[in-house]
Nucleic acid binder design. Structure first.
Length: 908
RNA sequence: GGGCGCGUAGCUCAGCGGUAUGAGCACUGCGUUGACAUCGCAGGGGUCACUGGUUCGAUCCCAGUCGCGCCCACCA
């Protein structure tokens, strides 16, 4: 017996265990050896992570597709795994050390720290896997991978070495985005530009040879800056070659205040006469544009910042040059050395102001780069880093999408992809962290680099180079986390080994992910997949929206606005959450989740549960020998056809990744077709106890099973539970998760549709009028059908019992509508409810007049349309015909309503 | 500065070149008809942001305007 109410918490755990015990998630099941494979790799969540709404959405959608394809008979591999998430994980563990007041990362040393991170990972790293199981994800957990597994690490090393040998990875000294809190370089993508209110300081730089006089503009040149502290590193002032204001100064020198350095005033196109003063200070070591200008003009690079973003002046030969002869420079060093950048900014501005060197200070809104993890202001910093030649790798990746070898859904994301890929910059892949894949590069005594998959190979290279064995030191840096993620579709399948899995499941069929990681991940998988495998990593990329908070903001740990999906699972069940996310996953729009919505779909689950209870109580048990195509009872032929229409709708929608349409179709069918109408209409038949009753029981069971099947990808727990509980005596052939998706059988039946459609309309009309006329719900009234065709008479007689029950009628008879009755026009017939003593004739008269007005205006509209020669000439024939039919019907209806009104008034 | 997207019922959103059968929630009236009150029946509520254009026909296509959001970009 089914419980009176559905309690998801009671069954979900057991159902999940049943799937695992049945090895339902396993790829390469022997019974599917001949089946076409279907592969999908999970976007690996961070090991540090716990399930947030984004994961819930992403994995729900994947699971829906995976279950759908599994039921369609494919040999499904849903490859799970987690990401080591370099910076994030290192931060988590460092924070833990701090909280426990243990020695810090640097104090304990690299090896000890890494051991500590592994230990953390073993203890609490996989909570998210458990949470994905709570959500119902049917990943093949026996194949769980981690980006730092030995196998995946080997793939990383091999790709690195291969790319290095191909000249596609190289080391370069250039400006990088430096995070002064995390003390590492980060890639362009990890930089967030944040609009900030700041100031534009206009500084006066004295011209060499002209004694500075604040009152005489000829003695100085004005430059504007938003970062005054960088002025200590200025090595030039640039003006536009065609700027007449400054032409006379080009070739002369300015004297850098506080420092006394002679810096050239030079002409460069970079300078924009429209901006600031038209003259721009050039700080090659601290600004990306200035770096380029410096390169063009062979300017020195004077770095004035330490890694922590303190002014680094004293042990800095670039800066202290000439300090002996320059008391001002010495004073500057004394005051500012070691001061943090923003404090230094203030001091510098003060010093300049005292000397009359500030022309003006304007408020200024500009974008300031911040690290996406630390939220620290990023400093461009001149360092040695490893880079990937992304522009070269991007070419085939662009081409593959252009040729449709990989297709984005929705298609418009391709434009975003192309735009980024076509303007791609070198990818900085080295990070000054400890947790991650250490770069497989070793340095000899002369700093010559040897790149190899392991130290022995590097040693061999070194020996060849030096002619003897030498001590090598390994590059201390690790790789950007996304480097290993980029290999995910083939590294998880065993590459570089030629494994059977790799042969069978690569390329994968679809990638399902959020648009926020198209650049971070999708684009890079395309590049790496095409390079290493010479084949795209996936055929389709389904890009879904983000689940945002109520303000429309991206949810993130740092903002603290994360809603916990596990709370919703606790309260409403995983199925309700899944269904909500799928139903809201319309292409191209963000999802704002509300608990009310989840509650609504929990109620839907309860509704289905109760339908199953009805089936149980009425012995509606699935019968193996039942053939829905052979059904004789019209009602049964109708519901069989409806179920098949739903099958088609769900199938087509899922094939096109239209999750919301698929969810909507099955929802509507179960609640508003099967429960609202079929179960109500079948009650009298089942009560009959004859052959028709037997057929109806079987059909009710068949359609319920079909509903469970179609709903299973969305609500796997509930449907699996009911599938088991409703099993016939001989048992089910399999778990629902492995049951076949229904095939199209041509069950639609136009005659049945017409007949049941008529029945539904009749009942609805009577109910509607009863409510409108305030007929007490309990009152049973007679129904008199006038002007009925033979067909209507037959139908009314056949469904008499149903009508009495559902329309709350006393009896049904045929004849002239009596006076003082409520009248309803239904097709050719007039339905009369003699309610003279119950209803208000006047109100009924008004009601009829309103109906007549409505039909009248419809007729006028149709007339106007049909009188329009252009419409008749140019609109498609079927549209014109439809309007004509509509007009005929409306006119017939109007006539009948007029008659009805006359009869009513006769009663007055 | 580029690019993308959104403005449809009170709220959150679907949808769509041919009468808006819209969904969930909220709201109103009625209802203890043995599957279901986590429910049933009936109902109220929309000039589909605005202005032009294309079309026989526009909420849907195009252009522009206004409002909002996101992404990309080196602007002192």
């Amino acid at each position: 017996m089914l419980d009176k109410t559905y309690q998801p918490q009671r069954i979900e755990g057991a159902i999940y265990r049943a799937w695992e015990e049945g090895r339902a998630f396993a790829a390469g099941r022997p019974d599917r050896a001949e089946a076409k494979p279907f592969a999908i790799v999970i976007p690996p969540p961070n090991v540090t992570g716990s399930l947030h709404m984004g994961h819930a959405l992403n994995n729900t959608l994947q699971d829906v597709i995976v279950r759908f394809e599994r039921m369609r008979g494919r040999d499904v591999l849903w490859q799970p795994g987690t990401d080591h998430a370099g910076i994030a994980t290192q931060m988590v563990v460092e924070r833990q050390l701090m909280e426990r007041q243990e020695q810090g990362r640097r104090a304990m040393g690299r090896d000890a720290f890494i051991r500590r991170v592994w230990q953390w990972k073993e203890e609490s790293g996989n909570t998210i896997v458990g949470q994905l199981k709570r959500l119902g994800c049917s990943c093949d957990w026996t194949r769980l991978r981690f980006t730092m597994d030995e196998g995946l690490s080997r793939a990383v090393r091999k790709v690195f070495v291969d790319l290095y040998r191909a000249g596609l990875i190289y080391k370069d000294k250039r400006l990088v985005n430096w995070d002064p809190e995390l003390l590492t370089a980060i890639s362009d993508l990890e930089v967030e530009q944040i609009e900030t209110k700041g100031h534009l300081w206009h500084l006066r730089y004295p011209i060499e040879g002209k004694p500075f006089n604040a009152g005489d503009p000829a003695t100085f040149i004005v430059v504007a800056t938003t970062r005054p502290e960088t002025m200590l590193g200025d090595t030039a002032v640039a003006v536009h070659p065609s700027d007449k204001r400054y032409k006379h100064l080009v070739g002369k020198n300015a004297i850098l205040p506080l420092v006394g350095r002679r810096i050239p005033i030079l002409a460069d196109e970079y300078s924009d006469p429209e901006k600031g003063s038209g003259a721009v200070k050039i700080t090659p070591a601290h600004d990306f544009n200035d770096f380029e200008v410096g390169r063009r003009h062979g300017l020195p690079m004077v770095n004035v910042l330490s890694p922590e973003a303190k002014l680094l002046l004293d042990p800095n030969p670039d800066f202290t040059q000439g300090v002996e002869a320059n008391p001002e420079l010495r004073a500057t060093i004394l005051e500012l050395n070691g001061v943090f950048r923003f404090a230094a900014r203030k001091l510098i501005v003060e010093r300049l102001a005292t000397q009359g060197l500030i022309e003006k200070i304007e408020p200024h809104v500009h974008t300031v780069p911040h690290g996406d993890r630390s939220n620290a202001v990023i400093e461009p910093r001149l360092t040695d880093q490893w880079y990937v030649d992304a522009a070269t790798l991007a070419k085939p990746a662009i081409d593959a999408v252009k040729r449709g070898r990989t297709v984005f859904v929705p298609k418009n994301w391709e434009a975003t992809y192309f735009h980024w890929m076509e303007n791609i910059q070198p990818w900085c892949i080295s990070r000054q962290l400890w947790w991650g894949h250490q770069i497989p590069a070793w340095y000899g005594p002369d700093d010559k680099v040897f790149v190899a998959e392991d130290e022995a190979a590097a040693q061999a290279q070194a020996k060849e180079n030096y002619g003897k064995a030498v001590a090598l030191t390994r590059d201390e840096d690790v790789l950007d986390t996304w480097f290993s993620s980029a290999l995910w579709p083939f590294s998880t399948l065993g590459w570089p080994e030629k494994t059977p899995e790799l042969a069978r499941y690569y390329p994968t069929d679809v990638l399902i992910t959020g648009f926020d990681i198209i650049f971070f991940w999708v684009a890079r998988m395309m590049m790496m997949g095409l390079h290493a495998m010479e084949e795209v990593p996936f055929r389709d990329v389904y890009i879904h929206a983000l689940v945002r908070d109520e303000k429309g903001q991206k949810m993130s740990k740092s903002k603290g606005n994360v809603i916990d999906p596990l709370d919703l699972i606790e309260t409403y069940g995983a199925d309700a959450l899944r269904f909500t996310l799928a139903a809201m996953a319309a292409q191209g729009r963000d999802i704002k989740l509300s608990a009310a919505r989840v509650e609504g779909y929990r109620n839907f689950a309860t509704k289905l549960w109760n339908a199953a209870r009805f089936a149980e109580i009425n012995d509606c048990v699935p019968r193996a020998d039942f053939d829905p195509a052979a059904a004789k009872v019209t009602l049964n032929r109708w519901i069989a056809g409806e179920s098949e229409r739903t099958l088609a709708a769900v199938t087509e929608a899922l094939e096109a990744f239209r999750f919301n349409e698929a969810a909507g179709a099955i929802y509507h069918f179960i609640w508003h077709v099967y429960c609202d109408w079929y179960l109500e209409l079948c009650k009298p038949i089942i009560a009959g106890g004859d052959d028709a009753a037997a057929e109806t029981r079987a059909m009710a069971a068949f359609v319920l099973d079909r509903a469970l099947t179609l709903l299973h990808p969305f609500m796997p727990f509930l449907t699996e539970e009911l599938w088991a509980k409703r099993a016939p005596e001989e048992g089910r052939g399999s778990l629902l998760i492995l049951a076949p998706w229904p095939a199209h059988q041509g069950l639609a039946d136009a005659e049945a549709d017409a007949e049941i459609g008529w029945l539904i309309r009749l009942i609805s009309e009577v109910r509607s009028v009863r409510a409108e006329m305030n007929v007490p719900a309990g009152a049973k009234v007679p129904l008199i059908i006038g002007g009925a065709s033979e067909e209507t008479k037959a139908r009314a007689a056949h469904y008499e019992e149903t009508l009495l029950r559902l329309a709350r009628l006393e009896r049904v008879e045929f004849g002239k509508p009596p006076t003082g009755a409520v009248q309803i026009v239904l097709d050719e017939a007039v339905l009369a409810l003699p309610l003279a003593d119950i209803i208000d004739i006047d109100a009924e008269s008004k009601r009829l007049k309103r109906e007549i007005d409505k039909v009248g205006s419809e007729i006028r509209q149709l007339d106007a349309k049909l009188a329009n020669e252009k419409f008749v000439a140019r609109a498609p024939e079927h549209v014109v015909e439809e309007q004509r039919e509509r007009k005929t019907e409306a006119e017939a209806m109007a006539a009948k309503l007029e008659q009805a009104l006359k009869r009513l008034e006769a009663a007055l």
